[in-house]
């Protein structure tokens, strides 16, 4: 089942989304640098569980317009209200994966009345020191080289940061989303490192599930985040990488749908 796609007007131009299923609304926010295509394997299983799933392309990713100036997480969070309004939803459940978890945290912090439930899948609740270290890493556009090595090198880089990977097809599909973002593909990570997530995360008031997988690159960060908010529900899947949605679509979707639909 291929989700249908569409556009809605937002504060930085058009916002692109994918939509599948009918029922309880669930908004999905992707990791960076990717797009709502990263949930490709989950649209059908989530829809089969009675959810109306809407994957939102973060501004500057997928087909969503890139903001005129480099955005922060709070800017990314501004993409959600227009999507809710488009479907006449006063509120919805929200799931964010990695940078997406930062996006939905910023939104839930500012608009708790519009977030019925929140799922933080590998929330990047970094310390100030971790953020500073990551922010200092080189970032920026990568010009093409005549031997195509810019592509091979970047692909190898993604393989290297996907320890324990099993799905080269998912690696490729997700890497294509990185390329699709063009010269500003690095904005998403930069925004995540700039964002003081901890203070907003600690103050969240909506029912929240922390979802992780034991070999995800943010597993330890996520466990630490749970220790800050032991009142939040917690589910960990076994194994997996940041391509967990491709690796375990049924298990992942079952965990997500259970939390969204349980009273």
């Amino acid at each position: 089942m291929k989700p249908r796609r569409g556009y809605v007007d937002g504060p930085f131009g058009q916002i692109h989304y994918r939509i599948a299923g009918e029922g309880v609304p669930l908004i999905l926010s992707h990791q960076s640098p990717s797009s709502s295509d990263m949930f490709r394997a989950a649209y059908a299983p989530l829809a089969a569980r009675g959810l109306m799933v809407i994957g939102v392309d973060t501004p500057g990713f997928g087909e969503s317009d890139v903001p005129p100036a480099r955005p922060g997480i709070v800017d990314y969070a501004k993409a959600f209200a227009p999507v809710l309004d488009r479907f006449n939803l006063k509120s919805a459940a929200f799931l964010g994966h990695h940078t997406g978890a930062a996006n939905v945290t910023a939104f839930a912090f500012r608009h708790p009345e519009r977030v019925s439930k929140l799922i933080l899948n590998g929330p990047p609740v970094y310390t100030a020191a971790e953020r500073a270290e990551r922010a200092s890493r080189p970032a920026g556009p990568i010009p093409p080289e005549s031997d195509g090595s810019h592509l091979a090198r970047r692909f190898q880089g993604r393989v290297a940061v996907t320890k324990g990977w099993t799905r080269i097809d998912a690696m490729h599909a997700n890497f294509m989303q990185t390329l699709w973002a063009g010269d500003t593909f690095w904005y998403g990570h930069k925004a995540a490192y700039d964002y003081d997530m901890e203070s907003e995360y600690k103050a969240l008031k909506v029912p929240t599930l922390i979802l992780t997988n034991t070999t995800d690159d943010l597993y330890e960060v996520t466990k630490r985040a749970h220790a800050m908010r032991p009142d939040m529900a917690y589910v960990e899947l076994t194994g997996g990488t940041h391509d967990i949605v491709d690796e375990q679509p049924e298990t992942w979707s079952a965990a997500v749908a259970k939390f969204v639909k349980d009273a």
């Binding site: 010009p143 093409p144 080289e145 031997d147 195509g148 592509l151 091979a152 970047r154 080269i168 490729h172």
Partner: peptide
């Protein structure tokens, strides 16, 4: 077919450039 060393991408790029060597790399 994707390859872990990314050669599926670079080889395609090389071939594409080979058929049109005067095009921009972009």
């Amino acid at each position: 077919t994707p390859k872990a060393d990314g050669s599926h991408l670079s080889s395609r790029f090389q071939r594409a450039l080979g058929t049109t060597p005067k095009a921009s790399l972009e």
